[in-house]
Design a protein around this nucleic acid. Structure first.
Lengths: 127, 127
DNA sequence: CCAAATCGTTAGTCACACTAACGCTAGTTC
DNA sequence: GAACTAGCGTTAGTGTGACTAACGATTTGG
């Protein structure tokens, strides 16, 4: 919870929240996608995603356009500004991570992430 | 987040939330206390604690009475029903923990809790 | 004795998880 | 090709939890 609070604080200073980061990072990793795909990948409910995409488009960080191949869909695309913001947030989050993990040695950090990775992968989507 | 969701689900089935558990457990560990002390120990804001204590008294799990030694204070006391509920919640949470940590061996579980303990103790209250 | 601090309380904001329902579009079936 | 079904985006609303501001009552320290 304390780590979470620090993350939120620092993201706020960069005019962002966790959801914004999640969407930007997902678009960067998997490329342009519909809102439904983003919802699946980020675990953000499609109802909440609407507002997030609104905010990101208002900041010019993503582009929302109807998908010509399926007119029910919106295609969300990462813009240059979005890519810049993502790099910025990556930096911010790396700093917080360093701060949070400060008391652990490199070996211990690897142990911790390995253990947590096992947990996440074990109970995948459903749980 | 998935573990948190499971915890919330199971607590809800026992007619409780995380805050209720936190207060009951703290009263059990440190004995009767004022709301301000509970706020310090549980990290629940004193403004939110009011409602939690209201709910716990409504369920008969704690008792709220003015402290004769300092009439600004309310003394919160664990009742028998509160102790019973705490034991119940302990059981529920142990089950969820077992479920969450299922893929880890006993040694790995100890590693994980040790690492997390280091983190929590390193950045104590402030952070 | 008076000012400052503490305590409980009320009211309100914000982030995020989650549900229900509606209109639109696409694919399927008869 | 009409009707049904399913998927998509959107709106509105609920509940939990973190956090702030302010107020009346009481206690404490100079």
């Amino acid at each position: 919870m304390q780590a979470d609070r620090r993350v939120n604080e620092e993201l706020a200073r960069a005019d962002a929240r966790k959801w914004h980061f999640a969407v930007l990072a997902t678009l960067d990793e998997f490329g342009a996608a519909s809102q439904a795909e983003l919802s699946d990948r980020t675990r953000i409910y499609r109802s909440d995603l609407v507002a997030v995409i609104n905010e990101l488009t208002a900041r010019g960080q993503v582009d929302r356009a109807p998908d010509p191949a399926d007119r029910r869909r919106n295609l969300i695309t990462l813009t240059q500004a979005g890519r810049r913001q993502l790099r910025e947030l990556d930096k911010v989050l790396a700093e917080v991570e360093e701060e949070v993990l400060a008391p652990l040695s490199p070996v211990e950090r690897k142990q911790l992430t390995d253990l947590l990775t096992v947990l996440v992968e074990h109970h995948g989507q459903p749980m």
